[in-house]
């Protein structure tokens, strides 16, 4: 369902954002730009929700999210996966996120230079963010396939969330029922050792 008043507000907020970018040469405030961008994203999500379309909602993931980290290391098996990433570039602090009850996970080369072409850009997605995809086409696709199984469990799919982490150079996505902070370490090697141990445990 369309909401013309809401879509007008979105159009106006996009205009405000364009104006801020247009006058960057003379005056730029990251706070002002950030606030205007967040308003555009908020309205994009509302418009998509009204239309029943997929959109990227903000995800307050466990632990602080920096977003400028280049990429991540992914370890996984058929029921869980662990993602290791530096909390901030050159910080020497590594975090491990664990996704349980996974139905799928992927690491793609959708980085900040090409994210503008992603299907969820214009629907709440922006570079360097952490998101939950609402009305996820990926969940729908896999649920449709799973539905053919005699022991199909509809509740499992109701509990499954589409998580999305936008690193600077890569995008990680996981369909999982649970995401938790599984540990932190002072090096990627130590973090990987911890993650491997977690992968082997129940």
């Amino acid at each position: 369902m369309n909401d013309p008043a809401l879509e007008d507000r979105l159009c106006t907020s996009k205009g405000t954002l364009r104006q801020i970018v247009a006058r960057m040469k003379q005056r730029f405030s990251a706070e002002e730009y950030g606030a205007a961008l967040e308003e555009v994203l908020r309205l994009e999500r509302l418009v998509a929700e009204k239309r029943g379309e997929p959109y990227a909602a903000k995800w307050e993931l466990p632990g602080v999210w920096d977003g400028m980290t280049l990429d991540c290391t992914v370890l996984g098996n058929q029921s869980k996966c662990l993602v290791i990433f530096e909390t901030k570039p050159a910080s020497g602090k590594f975090r491990i996120l664990q996704f349980r009850g996974t139905a799928g996970y992927k690491l793609t080369d959708v980085g900040d230079e090409v994210i503008a072409a992603h299907s969820l850009t214009g629907r709440g997605l922006t570079a360097y963010g952490a998101f939950l995809v609402e009305h996820s086409p990926w969940i729908k696709e896999l649920e449709q396939i799973d539905r053919t199984h005699p022991q199909f469990d509809a509740q499992k799919w109701r509990n499954t969330k589409h998580h999305m982490l936008c690193f600077k150079d890569r995008m990680f996505e996981a369909l999982a029922t649970e995401a938790t902070l599984a540990g932190e370490a002072a090096s990627r090697e130590t973090a990987t050792t911890i993650a491997l141990a977690q992968l082997g445990s129940r």
Binding site: I20, V21, Y33, L37, M68
Partner: peptide, 16 residues
């Protein structure tokens, strides 16, 4: 170029 400007703005917002 507006898209370059937008990319720089997004960087600056995140990176400080």
């Amino acid at each position: 170029n507006d898209s370059v400007a937008d990319q720089v703005a997004k960087h600056l917002r995140r990176s400080g």
